[in-house]
Design a protein around this nucleic acid. Structure first.
Length: 269
DNA sequence: AATTTCCTCAACCGCACCCGG
DNA sequence: ACCGGGTGCGGTTGAGGAAAT
């Protein structure tokens, strides 16, 4: 017996202001499929009027998009899909619909649920929201200060390189090399959208904590990975970081193949 | 075997954006 | 410029089943 049949038998589904809520019955599914066949996707608020379905437009759209669409892929997320999810989450954060576009047949809801189930199990033991937001604010302040410092160091570096070029034109004499700018959490611009936002750390991120910010951590800069309070912790950027916080959020594909700068991309929550 | 805890996922909610009037 | 309807998105909830005790 399907869930649909069970719910029909139990007369499930609350009626509120004329709209039914709760699990869909097979009859409701049939009516919705018929509607899409006749009128196509969209204009979901017309479904009730044209098809006699006591569901509001949002509910109809959701049911179609997440369950009835014929191109949906059923079954377990494959390891390959999982790696794509991890990689794209490292890039996009919680932009589930964006991630879903790269996984044909999978819905944003499905990916969101999968992520929460498999990669967010540790939230119960994580700090309170207040603690987290305070930590985020501190990191943000540090980030801004460091951006200023980075800008300054880069200017110094560029000035130095200009001097090197000029001096090379004259002779091969040594010009002292200033240190490369380091200790900067570099917000990577991955594509046009990230570029348009300048970085992935958006205002929405600040307000809702919805998106994770992305940082590339140079492990050469980690003061003490081994001697830190726990094996999972390390110091970086003046903060104690716990690798548990990044559980599942480290993208192997994001490891940078560079001996001098062994960066890892993390999502910072 | 009974009870509790954990996991999964469909569905809902609130908010933001877009677009036409 | 403003308003309202339609739509899309991300966060959250809660029922049901599975696993653990």
């Amino acid at each position: 017996m399907s869930l649909g049949m069970i719910t029909e038998n139990m007369n499930w589904g609350v009626i509120e202001e004329g709209w039914r809520k709760g699990p869909w019955t097979s009859e409701e599914d049939r009516l919705l499929i018929e509607y899409v066949k006749l009128h196509g996707e969209g204009r979901w608020n017309s479904v009730a009027r044209l098809q006699g379905l006591k569901r509001n437009g949002k509910s109809c759209r959701l049911r179609w998009v997440n369950y009835l669409r014929p191109d949906l892929k059923r079954g377990q997320i494959t390891p390959k899909e999982e790696s794509v999810i991890i990689e794209l989450h490292a890039r996009w954060g919680n932009r589930w619909s964006t991630i879903a576009r790269s996984l044909p047949g999978r819905t944003d809801n499905e990916i969101k649920n999968y992520w929460r189930t498999h990669f967010k199990k540790k939230t119960k033991t994580s700090p309170t929201n207040a603690t987290k937001s305070k930590a985020r604010m501190l990191r943000r302040q540090q980030f801004q200060q460091q951006q200023l410092l980075l800008h300054h160091q880069q200017q110094q570096y560029e000035a130095h390189m200009q001097r090197v070029v000029v001096s090379n034109l004259r002779d091969e004499s040594e010009v002292p090399m200033p240190p490369l700018p380091q200790h900067q959490p570099m917000f990577k611009q991955q594509d046009s959208m990230a570029s348009s936002n300048n970085c992935l750390h958006t205002a929405k991120n600040d307000q809702e904590n919805a998106y994770s910010s992305m940082a590339m951590i140079n492990f050469n800069d980690c003061a003490s990975v081994a001697e830190s309070p726990s094996d999972q912790d390390f110091f970086w950027d003046g903060n104690l970081w716990n690798l548990d916080d990044f559980q599942g959020n480290v993208s192997e594909a994001s490891l940078q193949e560079n001996n001098n700068y062994p960066f890892m991309i993390f999502n910072c929550f």
